[in-house]
Design a protein around this nucleic acid. Structure first.
Lengths: 205, 205
DNA sequence: AATTTTATAATACAGTTGTATTACAAAAAG
DNA sequence: CTTTTTGTAATACAACTGTATTATAAAATT
């Protein structure tokens, strides 16, 4: 297959191969040779799409971010009741499935790596803080947010809970499993919302 | 200076040099040569104290852990009022000073690295969960813990808040600064404790 | 004083790294 | 059919990696 290649598609395939390598062997194993092998390409072929390693890593990292953002936007567009929507969005961030687990692992490895390559990478701003601030704001607009609480403090707290839980789900997946995460998050959402009369028999949120 | 060397002291010095290298250049820069240079030793000299690189890394990692544990135990022994003690201990975990900031950075790099070297490293269990569980339990024993709350849930939540805040303090130090951390933690401790009559003019916790 | 032990240093070695160069074949363009 | 472009592959190279070996000198031991 020599001349007609969809460059964007190929680059995504290579990025996905990069994720797989990082998942299995960490950032240390994310060498151009290992990635090329995982993608089923030669060194020269790989270099035809990414002329430098950092370029590839930046691309692979941004793709993780875009992927997660897309998933979250999809859920946000579902038009669920506020509290259910909130839980569902948060469950797209905290890893509870193989897919999001892998995402977290790759994000973690990338972030640690990128810390000392500031000239090349951006990192730090993954947009989750903004997303959570918006969720809290939305809750407040819907008159569900407890009026005695501070929005700013609760945003920072929820942000910390989300990333803390995500970290712990990654490091201790057997203790911090999906059910436990749902339980904690449900409980927390409940704790920042006004108590309401049950008027629909749908959820047990 | 040829024959009398305190081995333990030298090993600690090398471990500290390792931390400095990791701080400045990340895990990628933590080569035996860089560490030897930072410690002011030759390759051969370094190898006289650590016969393999992994041995050195394990030692340096455990020393970080021990150092943090010692700091926390020191605070725990201070015999402060429960809520003040809690805050002070939590502030030894969440990085708010140069020292604890560096500790967090090194822990982060180590943990990401160790994930894919399970045969050599342990990681994961840093004892913070247990410490927090004990703090919550102590609060309950002192009749300060709100009876309508679930101890297990609040332990997991506080644990997530601590590590989440720690992560954010490292990644966004200007936004998540010391004052903000104190504010968030104070507010949280307050939220899980019964409301009390002020009977001492000491603190504003 | 002679010998052993200990600390350090210099050098060597095989393997891996990112990147560059070169060669070659398949398809498109003329 | 020839020429150019594009994708792939093989190979080369200098730098760096962890570890091993060897040499040397200073102190302790005898």
């Amino acid at each position: 297959m020599p001349k007609l290649v969809d460059h964007e598609k190929r680059k995504k395939q290579i990025a996905e191969a990069t994720w797989r390598v990082i998942l299995e062997r960490g950032m240390e194993g994310a060498t151009v040779r290992n990635i090329a092998k995982e993608a089923g390409l030669s060194l020269g072929a790989l270099r035809h799409y990414f002329s430098a390693q950092d370029e590839l890593l930046v691309y692979a990292m941004e793709l993780v971010k875009e992927q997660a953002e897309a998933r979250i936007k999809r859920v946000a567009a579902e038009n669920l009741p506020p509290k259910e929507m909130m839980l569902k969005i948060l469950l797209e961030i905290v890893p509870t499935t193989k897919e999001t687990m892998a995402e977290m692992e790759v994000w973690f490895a990338f972030t640690a790596h990128a810390r000392h390559k500031k000239d090349v990478f951006d990192a730090s701003h993954d947009g989750i803080f903004t997303a959570i601030a918006r969720l809290i704001h939305y809750l407040d607009e819907m008159k569900l947010f407890k009026k005695e609480l501070d929005k700013d403090v609760e945003t920072e707290k929820l942000y910390a809970i989300i990333d803390g839980l995500a970290l712990h789900a990654m490091l201790e997946p057997s203790r911090v499993d999906r059910n436990r995460i749902i339980h904690i998050l449900t409980s927390h959402i409940h704790s920042i919302c006004k108590e309401e009369q049950e008027n629909s028999g749908v959820g047990h949120l």
